[in-house]
């Protein structure tokens, strides 16, 4: 457990992150990135679901080689080429044994990505 998680367990952090993600994505349209396409709706192609996939793929890509996390990805159905959702992954994280530094590392990364979402 490191300083960034505020002393909370992985389960609580996972639940809080899920709530943070839901809040962020419901307000999202990434408008501050601005333009590029005159007149179209530049963000027609973006959905909260697609961005959630980005998030899950990111942590999967980064941590799939970490042996203690592999069962979590497996439990959540996050295997190469298959789609899994964030809720399933976080549910798997919440049920993982406490005290695994790698789990908190994964949560740190999710937290960083989600907290930066509003600044897009």
């Amino acid at each position: 457990m490191n300083a960034s998680n505020g002393g909370r367990g992985a389960g609580l952090r996972a639940i809080a992150l899920m709530a943070a993600w839901r809040r962020a994505v419901s307000a999202h349209t990434a408008l501050s990135t601005g333009m590029a396409c005159a007149c179209g709706s530049p963000f027609d192609g973006v959905s909260g679901e697609a961005l959630e996939q980005d998030l899950v793929f990111y942590v999967y890509d980064k941590y799939r080689g970490v042996p203690v996390l592999h069962p979590l990805f497996e439990q959540a159905g996050c295997l190469d080429g298959s789609a899994c959702d964030l809720a399933t992954l976080l549910r798997a994280v919440a049920s993982a044994p406490e005290g695994l530094a790698e789990v908190h590392g994964l949560l740190d990364d999710l937290e960083k990505a989600i907290s930066g979402f509003g600044r897009l």
Binding site: A30, T33, A36, C37, P42, D54, K62, D109, A113, G116
Partner: peptide, 19 residues
């Protein structure tokens, strides 16, 4: 339109190539 999480800083990105 492309989007994802950058491995460089762990943050989301959304961008365009074009028009």
């Amino acid at each position: 339109l492309f989007h994802g999480v950058s491995p460089k800083d762990g943050r989301f990105f959304i961008g365009f190539v074009g028009p």
